[in-house]
């Protein structure tokens, strides 16, 4: 099975490398990068429009019954109805908030525990020996596979749902933090020590800021993984949430609501990723410079 974390990680690293020349490259490189970016942007927009048009055309041609492929208009109408009147006892906003609440609770808990854990793994071989094996063991397991066990242990309450997402987020953040710690420039640590820094000061003032770019990348990856674990988590006797909405709509064969739910889930994922990139740019302006 391809390892989603490894792929995302490599993609993020490649992207960071790709972003570097834009900041300091020569004018010609920058111009070429600009052209490439515009070609990419235009093509991406055209592709999106074409896909929507295809969807519209196929659903209107009557080739596929609406049960299998509802038209864009039907989905839009559902969007307005679900937003105003709700679906299975909750409006779209309430479903969305329930899902976001779970993901952010899990993310907060994961960051608060995974960053210290990653620091420990990166700094101390003893801590690494304790923490790394269990993380590496559970990380490749799809959350759906251990969901039943989580339910047996923690019941069907909110805790199980948040815990499932938490576990999915914890591993990438902890391992990214550890990688960030190991990548901190040795000379910078030496510089701080020869200025009289204690071990604690080195960790707080040199290692942590030095690892920040990778920590933020880890959080970005973690949030993506966490959001995609959502549907799995909301399989557990939820009464609210986007995953739950899609599930129950599928049971009633309300395909338009299913498609609506999927589109909202995708849109939220996109917004979160863009937000985190902005945060990354604001917090690590030195990224790409030496």
């Amino acid at each position: 099975m391809p390892d989603i974390f490894a792929i995302l990680w490599a993609a993020a690293a490649a992207e960071r490398r790709a972003e570097q020349p834009a900041g300091q490259g020569q004018a010609s490189t920058r111009r070429r990068t600009g052209v490439r970016r515009r070609v990419f942007g235009t093509t991406a927009i055209v592709t999106t429009v074409v896909l929507f048009a295809l969807w519209w055309a196929i659903s209107h041609a009557g080739l596929v019954p609406p049960l299998f492929l509802p038209s864009p208009e039907a989905v839009a109408t559902q969007a307005i109805r679900v937003a105003a009147d709700g679906y299975v006892d909750a409006t779209l906003a309430q479903h969305l908030l329930a899902s976001l609440g779970r993901v952010f609770a899990a993310l907060l808990a994961a960051v608060l525990t995974a960053v210290p854990a990653g620091l420990a793994i990166g700094l101390n071989p003893f801590a690494r020996g304790i923490l790394e094996p269990p993380i590496e063991f559970y990380r490749p397991i799809p959350p759906l596979a251990y969901l039943p066990l989580v339910v047996i242990w923690f019941g069907i309450g909110e805790i199980s749902k948040v815990l499932l997402i938490y576990l999915a987020v914890f591993a990438p953040v902890a391992l990214a933090t550890a990688a960030g710690v190991r990548s901190v420039d040795r000379e910078r640590i030496n510089a701080a020590r020869s200025l009289g820094a204690s071990r604690g000061q080195v960790v707080r003032l040199v290692v942590l800021p030095g690892a920040l770019p990778e920590i933020l990348t880890g959080i970005r990856i973690g949030l993506g993984v966490g959001w995609s674990t959502l549907v799995a988590a909301e399989l557990v006797a939820a009464t609210r949430g986007l995953g739950f909405m899609v599930q129950s709509a599928a049971q009633f064969l309300a395909t338009d609501v299913v498609v609506l739910g999927i589109l909202v889930i995708a849109a939220v994922a996109l917004v979160l990723d863009v937000l985190l990139r902005l945060i990354q740019r604001a917090c690590v302006p030195w990224q790409g410079h030496r």
């Binding site: 000379e187 030496n190 510089a191 020590r193 020869s194 800021p209 030195w286």
Partner: peptide
Amino acid sequence: LGPGAERGVVFQNDALLPW
């Protein structure tokens, strides 16, 4: 036995803190 503030160092590649 280790570095200390009584021995200041100027590094070959500056080793400044970019943050």
